[in-house]
Amino acid sequence: MKKLLVFILAMFFVVSAFSFKAIMVTDTGGLGDKSFNDGTWAGIQRAGEDLGIETQVIQSYEQADYISNLTKAAQEIQKEPDGGIVYAVGFMMTDALFQVAQQFPDVYFAGIDIAPPTEDVPPNVICFLFKEQESAFLVGYIAAATTRTGKVGFIGGIPIPPVERFRYGFEIGVKVYNDLHGRNVEILKGYTNAFSDPKKGKDLALSQFAGGVDIIFHASGACGNGIIEAAKEKMVSLVGKEDLATILDYAYSNGGYFAIGVDVDQDYMAPGIVLASAMKGVDTASYLGVKWAYEGNWMPGIHKLGLKENGVRMSPMKYTKGLVTNDTLAELAYLVTLIKNGILVIPETEESLKSFKTPKIAFPF
């Protein structure tokens, strides 16, 4: 019995001697944005639970924190007997990530929405990029089909490449709907020039609503919380109540004011008022990076995820699907197959946006 106890204790110390840690460094939006950072952290936490490893998050309060926080995270990983991985979240961390990664070649680094500044990607770095324009196309088409005023809005945060790709896709979704249905839905565009100021988002949303917009798609991080709040206030003022059944009854007959979420499924934030969400699999990417590093299946370089790779998608519209016609949903499903097959290519640059022409599309129904 004594020998068995000694053996068990010995095995415990052997197992505990090996540890692997995943550390996420947020951008300035931080945890609680109900969007980009929260989605990435959810994937890392899920990996931690599945693999039985420790996870940690380090908050960045300003851009000046990026290098010091990534350095601190890398130093923490070096203390682990079995190593680990550091996540840098957001395009704004690009320079900091590659600067710090070069100083710690024995530490795995992963970037979400971070493209390498040169073609040479260090062997300890993996970059996850997304075809945001493809999920944004879906909600753009939905917005154009659903608007009662003929005017929809886009509010971006800082106009960095991922945000702009959301805008390109949204614009093309509206354009394709207009071209296929002979409509002239307009888009009002604006930027908060921040990601962590809900008040700026709310103020800009109220301005767009006052200008005749009835649906706003945001790609603005935590600023979007204010945009959703603005839509809710406007809708409740029309309806007089905020329970879901009353809102949906009113909206079905009269329309109203709606927001469209981003990055993760934000429909729950204001049921019946968040029409849909343009999602990208930041949680999937963060989960995979941890898993690949832990299991020794590391694949450095760029991994670009779109509809075909199930890396972007639209929310299932749990509360609002009844506000969209069956014809529109069927059309959208067909358009998704065209995108996956490369027949309908959604622009990812300003130049391709300007030159885009809607191809001849005949729905098989």
Rank of each mutant, 00 (worst) to 15 (best):
E229C: 09
A231P: 10
D203Y: 01
A222G: 13
G221I: 08
S237P: 08
V236K: 00
H218C: 06
V236E: 03
A222T: 09
K234E: 02
K200E: 03
A210T: 03
G201V: 05
G224K: 00
K199I: 14
Q208D: 05
L206S: 11
K199Q: 14
I215C: 02
A231H: 08
K234S: 02
A231C: 07
D214E: 14
A230D: 08
G201T: 07
S196I: 07
F209C: 02
G212Q: 00
D197R: 06
A219R: 13
N225V: 06
A210R: 02
G201A: 07
S237R: 07
D203E: 10
Q208G: 10
A230H: 11
L206K: 15
I216G: 05
L206N: 15
G211L: 07
L206E: 11
I216F: 11
G221C: 12
K232Y: 06
V236H: 01
D203I: 13
A219H: 12
I227Y: 02
M235G: 13
D197P: 13
G224N: 09
C223N: 15
K232T: 12
G211R: 03
A205M: 05
F209R: 00
Q208R: 00
D197E: 12
G211E: 06
K202F: 07
M235I: 11
G201Q: 00
A205K: 00
M235K: 04
D197N: 15
A210H: 03
L206C: 07
S207H: 13
K202N: 10
K202P: 04
L204A: 15
C223S: 15
A231R: 00
A219W: 12
D203L: 10
I215S: 03
G224H: 06
G224R: 00
D203P: 03
F217L: 15
K199L: 13
G226H: 06
K199T: 13
G224Q: 02
L204H: 15
I215Q: 03
K202H: 07
A231K: 00
A210W: 02
M235Y: 13
A210S: 14
G226N: 02
K200M: 12
G226C: 10
E233L: 11
A210V: 01
P198I: 05
K232M: 09
N225Q: 14
H218S: 02
G221E: 11
K200V: 09
H218Q: 08
N225I: 12
V213C: 14
E229W: 05
